[in-house]
Design a protein around this nucleic acid. Structure first.
Length: 241
DNA sequence: AACAGTCCCAACCGCGAATGA
DNA sequence: CTCATTCGCGGTTGGGACTGT
C-alpha cells in the first residue's frame, strides 16, 4: 500500500487522538458509581425530577450531577424514590391478586404490578421468588408444574379468601380478579373449582376488590404471611391426595 | 458470644423493543 | 432503510439482616 509522508502523519495524529479519547472514556467509566445509593444522591435525583420531570435518563443523570448510569437512576426512582411507592408487607388481598394474575400471565411482573398500585414489578418479583418459589422448593415440585399450580388454585387461594374474610369480619368476594373490568367482580360467573371453593365463603356483606385504591380503607392493611395459612404437613397431605 | 446457614431485597446485567437521526 | 441510542422488562446476584445452633 502506497501512502505519502503527510498521510502517514495524519493517520498517526488520528490514532493518537483516538487513544486519548479512549483513555478519557475509560476514566469516565471508572467514575461511574455503582452499588447502594447515598442520601445525597437520592436528594439530587428527587430534586431534579421534581423540577424537570422524569425520562431521558442518561441526560437526566448528567444534568443532575449524578455519576450513575441512566438505567441506575431510572431503577432507583421507580423502585424506591417515587412518592407513590407503597412500603411494607404484601397484604392478603395483594397476595391473592398476585397469585391470580400470575396464573394468567406468568412472569409478567410489570403487567401484574400495574394492578397493584404502589407496588413495583421488582417487589412482586421478589415476593414470588422468596415466598412462592420457596414453597415449591419445600414441596419438591417445580414452580411451573401442574401440581404446584393446582395447589395454588385449589388450596392456597381459597385459604386466602377465607383469611381475608375473617380478618375483615365480612365476606370477601374474590371472584376472578378482572383487570379488564376492574370496577366490579362478580361471583356468579365462576366455573372453576378454585372459584367454587372460594365461593363457599360468600354471603352477607361483600367486599369488592375490583377498585384498587391505596387509600381505600383496609384493603391493603395487614401483611399476613401466607405461611400462616397452613402447616407444611397439611400442605403435603393435600398434595398426596 | 460466635459462627453458619438462610432469607430478603436493592441493585445490576443482558437483551429485545421502541424511538429518533 | 439503517444505525445508534434509550427504555423497559425479566433474570440474577451481593450482601446485610435475621435465625438457629
Amino acid at each position: 500500500m502506497n501512502i505519502s509522508r503527510t498521510e502517514f502523519a495524519n493517520c498517526k495524529t488520528l490514532i493518537k487522538h483516538k487513544e486519548e479519547v479512549e483513555e478519557v472514556e475509560k476514566k469516565m467509566e471508572i467514575e461511574i458509581r455503582r452499588g447502594p445509593w447515598t442520601v445525597e444522591e437520592d436528594m439530587k435525583l428527587v430534586s431534579y425530577i421534581s423540577l424537570h420531570g422524569e425520562g431521558r435518563w442518561n441526560s437526566l443523570s448528567r444534568s443532575a450531577g449524578l455519576n450513575r448510569t441512566g438505567k441506575s437512576c431510572r431503577l432507583r426512582w421507580l423502585n424506591y424514590l417515587r412518592p407513590d411507592i407503597r412500603r411494607g408487607d404484601i397484604s392478603l388481598q395483594e397476595q391473592f391478586i398476585i397469585l391470580e394474575l400470575h396464573s394468567r400471565w406468568g412472569n409478567r411482573w410489570s403487567k401484574i404490578a400495574q394492578h397493584l398500585p404502589g407496588r413495583t414489578d421488582n417487589e412482586i418479583k421478589n415476593y414470588w421468588r422468596t415466598r412462592v418459589q420457596k414453597h415449591a422448593k419445600l414441596l419438591k415440585c417445580d414452580v411451573n408444574s401442574k401440581q404446584f399450580k393446582d395447589t395454588i388454585k385449589h388450596l392456597w387461594m381459597p385459604r386466602l379468601v377465607e383469611r381475608i374474610a375473617s380478618t375483615q369480619n365480612v365476606t370477601f368476594k374474590p371472584n376472578h380478579y378482572s383487570p379488564e373490568n376492574s370496577s366490579v367482580a362478580t361471583a356468579t360467573s365462576s366455573t372453576s373449582s378454585s372459584e367454587s371453593m372460594a365461593s363457599s365463603f360468600y354471603g352477607g356483606d361483600q367486599v369488592e376488590y375490583g377498585t384498587l385504591d391505596p387509600n381505600g380503607g383496609n384493603w391493603f392493611n395487614g401483611g399476613d404471611a401466607f405461611e400462616t395459612l397452613w402447616s407444611f404437613d397439611e400442605l403435603n397431605k393435600w398434595l398426596l391426595q
